[in-house]
Design a protein around this nucleic acid. Structure first.
Length: 478
DNA sequence: CGGTGGGACGATAGCGTCCCACCGGTGCTCTATT
C-alpha cells in the first residue's frame, strides 16, 4: 500500500487513491488477472497508466470506440504520456506501417478487437513484452460479442496467442452473472474481483405510466419544462428522436439536439462538445450516445422508450448526477413498449432458416448485410451449423430473460432502488421520499433542487469558434 | 405493439375508407481498378 501510494505521489502528485484504485493495483501487483467494477469518475485510466509506469512495460488497451481511443490518447498526452498511440482505421497505410514497426517504443497502445484480430497486426503484438492487457468497457464482450461485434469473442484466442499477459477488465456496470460471463468468454481463471457499489443515491428513480403516445408526449413536455437542464432523453428509434427534437424545440423553447448513428463524425463531435459546454440543454439520443460522455451536471435522464436490459438502464441513467447533486431518472412507459425492444432484439439474431440458408449457400452469397457478415464470422472460425444454431437459440433466450427483468423493474411497485441493487447482489433498505416512486411514495421534487426557478438563466456562449475546433479534430485524424 | 405509407375499392369523378405490409439500436473494418 505504501509502495503504491509513493508511486502515486511520484508520478501524479496525488496523496491518496480514489476508492477501488489501490485494491486493483494491489491485485495486479500480486500478478493476478483482475476485474475492476468501479463507478465512472473513479479514474480507471489512472490505474493502468500508473501500473505501466511502475512495471516499465507496454500496456495494451482494447477499446470499443475510435472516439474513445482518441479522447484517451489526447488526455494521456496532455498528462505527459507522449508515447501513447491508437491503432485505428483512421491511420493511413504509411503511418500504420511505421507504428507497427516501432510498436515497442510505445507505452500505451489503444486498439479495437477487430483491428487486433488481423493476423499481421497480431504478429506485431506477439513480439511485444506486454506488461498489461486491458479490456476497457469490458461489458461490451457480453453486450456485443455474440450478435453485433463478434470479434470481441476473439479476445480469448488472442490472449492465449500473446502468451497470456496479465489481464485487467474494467467496467462501471456488470452484474455477478455478467462478470462471470465476461471472464468465461475470455477463458480466464482465478480472477480477482474488485467490485464497488452501483448505487447512485443522488439519482431519484421513477416510472411514469402513460395512456398512449399523446399522453407520453405531454408528460415529456411537462417534465422538460419543469426540470432543470441539462438532460438526456433516450429513444430506441432514430426517427422518434428526430421528431421529438423538433417538437421540444418548438414547444419548450430549449436548445435541443438529436444524436444517433445517422450523424456524421463532424456533427457527433460538435453536439458532444456543445453539450459538454452547456450550449445544449437537451439531447434526444439513441444508445449511440453515452460511452465516453463525462459531463458531471446532467440533472435528468428520461427514457422515452424503456431500455432492453437492466445493465443498459443503469449505464444510461447513471450519466446523471456525477457531481453528486440531486438528479432524477424517469422511464415513460406505455403498455406494450417492450414489444419494440423485443422486435429489435430478435430481428438482430439470425433465425434457424437464415442459418441453414447461409451454410448451404456460403460460397454463392455476395450480399453484405449485417446478418450475413455475422454468420460469415462464425463460418470462417470453424463453427458448424449446429453450433451456430445453438448459440443463437441461447442468445434469444438470454435476451428475452433480460428484457423480462427490465419489464419487471418497470412494472414493479415496491422500492425501485432495492430492485435494481438486488440485480447487482447488493442489499438496500433505506427507502424514503428522495429514493424512488415505489412503495406508494410521492417523490419530493419541490423540496429538491431539480425544479427550475424563474431566476434560472440560460447562459449562451456565442463567441465559440467551432471551425477551429473541428479543423483541429480533422488534423488529428489525418 | 403502434404508426405509417401505399394500393385497392366503391360510388359516381374527386375523394373517403379500409386493409395490409412494413419498420423499429449499437460500430468496427476497407473493398484502392484502368
Amino acid at each position: 500500500m505504501d509502495y503504491l501510494r509513493q508511486n502515486l505521489k511520484k508520478w501524479f502528485g496525488f496523496d491518496d487513491f480514489r476508492p477501488g484504485q489501490s485494491e486493483v493495483l494491489a491485485a495486479l501487483n500480486q500478478g493476478k488477472n483482475t476485474f475492476g467494477m468501479l463507478p465512472t469518475g473513479t479514474g480507471k485510466t489512472l490505474i493502468y497508466q500508473l501500473f505501466g509506469l511502475m512495471i516499465k512495460k507496454p500496456v495494451v488497451i482494447i477499446s470499443p470506440l475510435i472516439s474513445l481511443m482518441q479522447d484517451q490518447v489526447d488526455r494521456m498526452r496532455y498528462l505527459g504520456s507522449k508515447n501513447t498511440v491508437a491503432i485505428t482505421s483512421n491511420l493511413n497505410f504509411i503511418e500504420k506501417k511505421r507504428i507497427l514497426k516501432n510498436l515497442s517504443k510505445y507505452s500505451y497502445i489503444y486498439i479495437s478487437p477487430e483491428m487486433i484480430s488481423q493476423s499481421d497486426i497480431l504478429e506485431s503484438f506477439k513480439k511485444l513484452d506486454i506488461g498489461l492487457f486491458v479490456i476497457d468497457e469490458a461489458h461490451c464482450i457480453v453486450q456485443w460479442g455474440t450478435d453485433f461485434r463478434p470479434e470481441y469473442l476473439n479476445l480469448h484466442r488472442i490472449i492465449n496467442y500473446l502468451n497470456n499477459p496479465k489481464v485487467l477488465m474494467l467496467t462501471a456496470t456488470a452484474s455477478k452473472k455478467v462478470r462471470y460471463e465476461i471472464v468465461d468468454k475470455l477463458g480466464l481463471h482465478n480472477v480477482k474481483n474488485i467490485v464497488k457499489s452501483t448505487n447512485r443515491s443522488n439519482i431519484m428513480l421513477s416510472v411514469e405510466y402513460c395512456d398512449d403516445s399523446n399522453d407520453k408526449n405531454n408528460k415529456l413536455l411537462s417534465l422538460v419544462n419543469k426540470l432543470r437542464s441539462p438532460g438526456i432523453i433516450y429513444f430506441s428509434s432514430k426517427k422518434m428522436a428526430n421528431m421529438v427534437t423538433i417538437f421540444l424545440r418548438k414547444e419548450a423553447h430549449l436548445r435541443v439536439e438529436a444524436y444517433h448513428s445517422d450523424l456524421n463524425n463532424e456533427n457527433r463531435y460538435r453536439i458532444q462538445h456543445q453539450f459538454m459546454d452547456n450550449q445544449i440543454d437537451v439531447i434526444c439520443a439513441t444508445s449511440a450516445f453515452g460511452m465516453g460522455i463525462d459531463k458531471n451536471n446532467i440533472r435528468y435522464v428520461i427514457h422515452y422508450h424503456m431500455p432492453s436490459n437492466i445493465e443498459s438502464y443503469v449505464q444510461e441513467m447513471g450519466r446523471a448526477g456525477r457531481d453528486m447533486d440531486e438528479s432524477i431518472s424517469i422511464i415513460l412507459y406505455q403498455k406494450n413498449d417492450e414489444i419494440l425492444q423485443y422486435n429489435l432484439l430478435m430481428d438482430n439474431i439470425p433465425d434457424d432458416d437464415m442459418i441453414s440458408f447461409y451454410y448451404q449457400n456460403y460460397n454463392k452469397l455476395d450480399n453484405n448485410d449485417e446478418q450475413t457478415k455475422l454468420l460469415k464470422y462464425y463460418y470462417d472460425n470453424g463453427y458448424s451449423k449446429d453450433d451456430v444454431t445453438n448459440i443463437f437459440q441461447a442468445r434469444r433466450l438470454e435476451q428475452k430473460d433480460s428484457l423480462a427483468e427490465m419489464l419487471s423493474y418497470v412494472l414493479n411497485n415496491h422500492c425501485r432502488r432495492k430492485k435494481l441493487l438486488t440485480h447487482f447482489d447488493e442489499a438496500f433498505d433505506d427507502h424514503n421520499e428522495y429514493c424512488c416512486d415505489g412503495n406508494h411514495t410521492k417523490l419530493n421534487l419541490q423540496a429538491s433542487n431539480l425544479i427550475r426557478s424563474n431566476n434560472d438563466k440560460i447562459i449562451y456562449k456565442d463567441n465559440y469558434d467551432w471551425h477551429s475546433i473541428i479543423n483541429s479534430l480533422f488534423n488529428k485524424l489525418h
